[in-house]
Simulated scan of single mutants.
Amino acid sequence: MQTASNVIQDKAAAAAGLKAAVRILDKWRATGEQGESILRVSHSSYARARRGDLAEIKLDSDQLARISYLLNIHAALRMLFENPDNVYGFVSMANHNPYFNGRTPLEVIGTGDFAALYETFKRIDSLRGAQW
Results as ranks from 00 to 15, higher is better:
residue 46 Y to D: 08
residue 60 D to P: 01
residue 58 K to S: 14
residue 43 H to Q: 15
residue 67 I to T: 04
residue 65 A to F: 08
residue 48 R to G: 04
residue 58 K to D: 10
residue 63 Q to N: 07
residue 44 S to R: 14
residue 69 Y to D: 02
residue 37 S to W: 09
residue 64 L to S: 05
residue 51 R to S: 11
residue 56 E to C: 10
residue 45 S to I: 15
residue 68 S to A: 08
residue 67 I to S: 04
residue 64 L to A: 02
residue 35 G to I: 09
residue 58 K to Q: 13
residue 65 A to W: 01
residue 49 A to D: 05
residue 46 Y to K: 05
residue 62 D to T: 00
residue 46 Y to C: 06
residue 45 S to N: 14
residue 46 Y to E: 05
residue 59 L to M: 05
residue 43 H to P: 10
residue 39 L to P: 08
residue 45 S to E: 15
residue 70 L to A: 06
residue 38 I to V: 05
residue 58 K to M: 03
residue 57 I to H: 13
residue 53 D to W: 11
residue 48 R to D: 01
residue 70 L to C: 04
residue 49 A to H: 08
residue 52 G to C: 06
residue 45 S to Q: 15
residue 49 A to S: 08
residue 56 E to W: 10
residue 43 H to V: 15
residue 37 S to F: 12
residue 48 R to L: 03
residue 51 R to T: 13
residue 54 L to I: 07
residue 60 D to R: 05
residue 63 Q to Y: 01
residue 57 I to D: 03
residue 68 S to N: 12
residue 36 E to I: 11
residue 41 V to C: 07
residue 56 E to D: 14
residue 48 R to I: 03
residue 70 L to Q: 00
residue 39 L to H: 09
residue 67 I to N: 05
residue 61 S to D: 04
residue 69 Y to H: 01
residue 67 I to G: 01
residue 39 L to N: 12
residue 53 D to C: 08
residue 41 V to R: 08
residue 68 S to P: 02
residue 36 E to F: 07
residue 51 R to E: 14
residue 49 A to N: 04
residue 39 L to W: 04
residue 61 S to V: 02
residue 62 D to R: 03
residue 51 R to V: 08
residue 39 L to Y: 11
residue 55 A to I: 11
